Amino acid sequence: MSVLLDHLPVIWQGLVVTLQLTVASFLGAAVLGVLITAMRVSPVGVLRAMGTAYVETFQNIPLLVLLTLAFFALPEIGIKADALVTAIVVISVYTAAYIAEALRSGVNAVGKGQGEAARALGLTFRQSLWHVILPQALRTVVQPLGNIVIALLMNTTLAGAISVVDLTDEAKRVNLVEAQPIAIFVGVGVMYALLASVIGYVTGRLERRLVMVR
């Protein structure tokens, strides 16, 4: 563990990048995931098909392939961005498929009478979805969403493949200098485990609180 303390500044810098990747990617994925969910439960068949195609596509392509393709292929067609921005966008687009699937299961868990009551009150599809259906659906998928965030955290380690220097990449660099892989990577693994535990604790508390409100 002392080897990590000796290189604490660079390890901390890598941890900050990992947290930036995780938070920014989740926010982007959450917004996109809600939009995809709305498409998947839409009364318009074309939108439902597009939403389904999105989820099926991005759930069946490895994230590493998407990252590599975006980083090396997009500049060839004139689309250039910083490696960190590219990683955030790609991870957001990828994770949105899983968030959309979780939210759709939550929407399906809401009683059909809720939607019928909203329509009887004169609400449009968008209004009933935003004000009636989604708030109830979110209560049922807090823990699944927490698991998705944990998976997202772990997926950020792949950003090193496109030159993003995150916690894992900093650990690799420290190991090149110190040649103590067990101490270094066990220590970094503990950091990831602690972050995942915090996410699990927060979502668990949030889930219990929402259940009490229901």
Rank of each mutant, 00 (worst) to 15 (best):
A179R: 14
V174D: 02
V202A: 14
V164Q: 01
S25Y: 09
V107Q: 00
V211F: 15
L129A: 11
G113S: 11
V110E: 00
I184V: 15
L35M: 12
R126H: 09
T168M: 15
L64T: 08
M39G: 15
A118E: 00
V44I: 12
L206R: 01
S197P: 01
V110H: 00
G33P: 05
A171G: 15
M191E: 02
R119W: 04
A179M: 15
G160A: 09
M212N: 08
S197C: 03
P135N: 11
V188G: 00
L15A: 13
V142K: 00
V93R: 08
M191G: 02
V142T: 13
A137F: 03
G200K: 10
P62I: 07
E56S: 03
V89P: 00
Q143Y: 07
R208T: 03
I77G: 15
D6H: 00
I148C: 06
S42K: 10
Q143V: 14
T86W: 00
V165A: 05
A83P: 10
A179H: 02
I133C: 05
V90T: 09
A87E: 14
A120E: 08
T203S: 12
S25I: 04
V17R: 10
A83W: 02
L129Y: 15
M1W: 12
M212A: 15
A196E: 14
A196F: 06
D166F: 08
A117T: 14
Q59A: 04
A109Y: 03
L8I: 04
V44E: 05
R104L: 04
Q143K: 12
T168I: 11
G113E: 07
M191F: 14
L145I: 12
L210I: 06
N108K: 09
V16E: 09
Y192H: 10
T86V: 13
G106N: 12
A38Y: 06
D169R: 14
F71E: 03
A30P: 06
G115R: 11
R40D: 07
P9I: 06
V17F: 03
L176P: 01
S105M: 06
S25K: 12
S25G: 10
F26E: 00
G122F: 06
V16W: 10
V44L: 06
V141W: 01
Y192I: 04
M212F: 12
L158T: 08
G33C: 10
E207C: 04
P75S: 04
I150G: 07
L66K: 04
N108Q: 13
V93L: 14
V10H: 05
W130K: 13
V141Y: 03
T52K: 07
L5P: 00
T18S: 10
H131Q: 06
V65A: 03
Q114L: 05
R104K: 13
